[in-house]
């Protein structure tokens, strides 16, 4: 009798032990992720801030020697991302409207599947694609980079727009249709405004995704040490591309500038993410 009882308690003790060990493992896993992020942000902020000064924001990129800044690269990133948004956002939103409002059929499923697969396209492949499409014919230029980034944004914007529009209650649609408003006007004047904050969130997240993107830019804008304000001709600079080039530099000062650029990229991405989160939390649908 007594032996059986101790068996049971020792078995229970063993199970308890395994349970606490596994709980500890889960804690450690989470700690690893938090530590990794802390480790990354700490170094980027500390070493990046060390590079920030007036020259950093006002002079052009340099790959050799002392000094240099990211002014031209910052301009390049802004222009390229702006043009990408100008192309990717409207097309993406319209594709999202199609999926949500007219996509309940086989064709819609195919488009949805392709959009999901497109989000998995390696970004470098999109760079090669635009290289063949535009760069071979027109040379390296900023707009080609925008096209590559727009293709990256497209499926993200489309899928988030679709998901948000699906959240708009049917009763709102029905109310509008019952008043005799045609379907297209209902979508544009009732459904979209209701879903607006969610759509904007999706757009901002897509922007954050492409703002720090580097791989597609190598083959499209090439990078430039000097000012080029014309996105339609000639090689351009971008912050992400500069960080990549500078990370290979043996010059200490250039590496320092690279850290400064990395901090700029991280800040851009984080601010965009926080903005998206803020808008989403105040949104009308979610």
């Amino acid at each position: 009798m007594t032996t059986r009882l101790t068996d049971v308690t020792s078995n229970y003790r063993r199970r308890k032990l395994v349970d606490s060990v596994m709980t500890g493992v889960a804690y450690v896993c989470t700690a690893v992720a938090v530590a990794a992020l802390g480790f990354v942000l700490f170094y980027v902020v500390v070493r990046g801030l060390g590079a920030w000064n007036l020259e950093f924001f006002t002079s052009t990129t340099k790959y050799f020697g002392e000094g240099g800044g990211i002014a031209n690269a910052l301009y390049g990133t802004a222009v390229i991302v702006a043009f990408a948004a100008l192309m990717g956002v409207p097309v993406g939103i319209m594709a999202g409207i199609y999926l949500a409002e007219y996509g309940e059929n086989r064709l819609g499923n195919v488009v949805r599947f392709v959009a999901d697969t497109m989000t998995g396209f390696p970004s470098i492949v999109l760079g090669l694609f635009v290289y063949g499409l535009l760069v071979l014919a027109y040379g390296f230029h900023g707009f080609a980079g925008s096209v590559a980034l727009a293709v990256m944004m497209l499926p993200i914007v489309a899928r988030t727009t679709e998901e948000i529009i699906r959240l708009v209650p049917d009763s709102i649609r029905e109310a509008s249709l019952a008043l005799g408003v045609p379907r297209w006007k209902t979508i544009l004047r009732v459904v979209i405004p209701t879903a607006m904050s969610g759509i904007i969130t999706g757009v901002i997240l897509a922007l954050a995704r492409v703002a720090g993107e580097t791989a597609p830019l190598i083959f499209t804008i090439l990078g430039n040490q000097f000012w080029n304000t014309d996105p339609f001709s000639g090689a351009m600079a971008a912050v992400s591309l500069f960080v990549f080039e500078a990370s290979k530099s043996p010059y200490e000062a250039v590496q320092q500038t690279a850290w400064g650029g990395a901090l700029v990229l991280v800040l851009i991405v984080l601010v965009l993410n926080l903005t998206a989160r803020f808008i989403a939390s105040r949104g009308s649908v979610r």
Binding site: V44, A208, G212, A215, V243, W259, A262, L265
Partner: peptide, 19 residues
């Protein structure tokens, strides 16, 4: 934290990784 980890650009990870 996890979302931020996903948002950090690849090239920044490269710079951090090497140095």
């Amino acid at each position: 934290v996890v979302e931020t980890l996903a948002a950090v650009p690849s090239v920044v990870y490269g710079l951090w990784g090497i140095f």
